[in-house]
């Protein structure tokens, strides 16, 4: 296109329209992919660290405080991505997705309070809420991969309270059976949580990012 203001034929017009629309849409997809990768990888890495920390009996304050790395790294990373992306186009889809995640962020806050006050299962609630957010995001930007990943995440999240119940029921027997370290079994729900986020955010994040890159390079 360069510096020319040339007249064009009709077919070239269609080509320009299609390419510009596809490139802009790909650009938006790639940016969305980055947010999923950021939050997905942060959650998976911190969760796995938590699991190892519990199994290896690391000091309790370290185990408890490490969870805060998820909102800290995710929040700071989001701010950096937003700042870097100041030149990217803003679409109506962007605005809707931001609103959705703002509501789910707020819901997570409520779930966290419920966990602190009433002992609700925060891992289950988090996986369920984030799954719902992913499904809605997929519906808004019409990405089947996100919709499916979110639904799978929501279904898998049910394993967490099931495991929790199972351990409450048979935990004592397991402890008495002499298996060492027993925490490796008791805290498997954290590994399930990490696996859910891999399915729900990391994989679709890579798919979105790579697909949009493919469109752009074509």
């Amino acid at each position: 296109m360069g510096s020319t203001v040339s007249k064009l034929d009709e077919r070239r017009s269609i080509e320009i329209i299609s390419r510009m629309i596809a490139d802009t849409s790909a650009h938006i997809d790639r940016e969305s992919g980055k947010y999923f990768l950021l939050w997905g990888y942060t959650t998976v890495i911190v969760s796995l660290f938590e699991y190892v920390a519990q199994v290896c009996h690391l000091p309790l304050p370290l185990c408890l405080w490490a969870w805060w790395l998820i909102p800290l790294v995710g929040g700071v990373g989001t701010l950096i991505l937003n700042r870097r992306g100041t030149t990217r186009p803003k679409s109506y889809v962007d605005r809707s997705i931001s609103a959705v995640w703002m509501v789910f962020g707020l819901s997570f806050g409520m779930a966290f309070i419920a966990a602190m006050v009433y002992g609700a299962n925060i891992l289950y609630l988090t996986a369920m809420l984030m799954g719902m957010g992913t499904v809605i995001t997929g519906k808004i930007c019409q990405h089947r991969v996100l919709t499916i990943a979110g639904k799978v995440g929501m279904i898998l999240s049910l394993i967490i309270p099931a495991w929790h119940l199972l351990m409450r029921e048979y935990g004592t027997e397991l402890r008495e059976s002499g298996i060492e370290p027993i925490e490796a079994i008791l805290y498997v729900e954290i590994v399930i949580f990490a696996a859910i986020f891999t399915v729900m955010m990391v994989i679709p994040g890579h798919v979105l990012y790579n697909r949009s890159k493919g469109i752009k390079d074509a």
């Binding site: 296109m1 203001v5 017009s13 490139d23 030149t87 186009p89």
Partner: peptide, 18 residues
């Protein structure tokens, strides 16, 4: 015109562009 059409094609799908 090639450039003006490209500008409008970009803007048609977004709320605003830098």
């Amino acid at each position: 015109s090639e450039l003006r059409l490209a500008i409008v094609s970009i803007l048609i799908g977004v709320e605003e562009a830098d």
